[in-house]
């Protein structure tokens, strides 16, 4: 059981952070702070997705060889070939060629797909945040408060016609 958790240690703090955001959303009556809680939760979800896409020993999904995959494969082969032939002449050159061949052939990348999804989500998130804050500003103009208890009381007295 402990092994399972240790292998997946990344989820534990992320769940705690998510729950922190959820707590802020529910427990606070202040509308601005509630939106802060929402963005806490959101950022934690981003972290969840990105940690799933991480590959051990990986590097950012930017191809090491500029552009052409076939060339990269080719380059790796010729470099490996070069490593063999050059071994007799210079240890340095051989070493270098072997290194580059190794690098091009063995390059491990993290999964780019979660990155793309989260890039979109970040931008959409700030758009919704902007609309939410604009609503809060309008509520403040109309009611003079952004605490939801006071808003409920104001609505109640409006509906019943009683002035508290």
């Amino acid at each position: 059981m402990l092994d399972i958790l240790i292998e997946r240690f990344n989820y534990i703090p992320i769940i705690i952070l998510m729950m922190t955001g959820l707590y802020v959303i529910i427990a606070t009556g202040n509308l601005v702070k509630r939106l802060v809680g929402l963005s806490l939760f959101q950022t934690s979800v981003f972290l969840l997705y990105i940690t799933i896409g991480k590959v051990f020993g990986g590097q950012p999904p930017i191809l090491v060889d500029s552009g052409h995959g076939e060339d990269a494969g080719h380059g790796a082969e010729t470099a490996a070939h070069g490593a063999e032939t050059a071994a007799g002449y210079g240890a340095d050159a051989a070493h270098y060629a072997a290194d580059t061949a190794h690098y091009a052939a063995e390059a491990v990348y993290s999964n780019p797909l979660p990155h793309v999804l989260i890039l979109t989500a970040i931008v959409v998130g700030v758009a919704t945040l902007a609309v939410g804050l604009a609503l809060v500003v309008r509520i403040r103009e109309s009611y003079g408060t952004i605490e939801d208890d006071a808003l409920n009381a104001a609505d109640y007295s409006l509906e019943t016609g009683s002035s508290e």
Binding site: G53, H115, L119
Partner: peptide
């Protein structure tokens, strides 16, 4: 976590 694009957008 190797998500450099996400990092600078964030």
């Amino acid at each position: 976590l190797d998500a450099v694009d996400v990092a600078f957008t964030e």
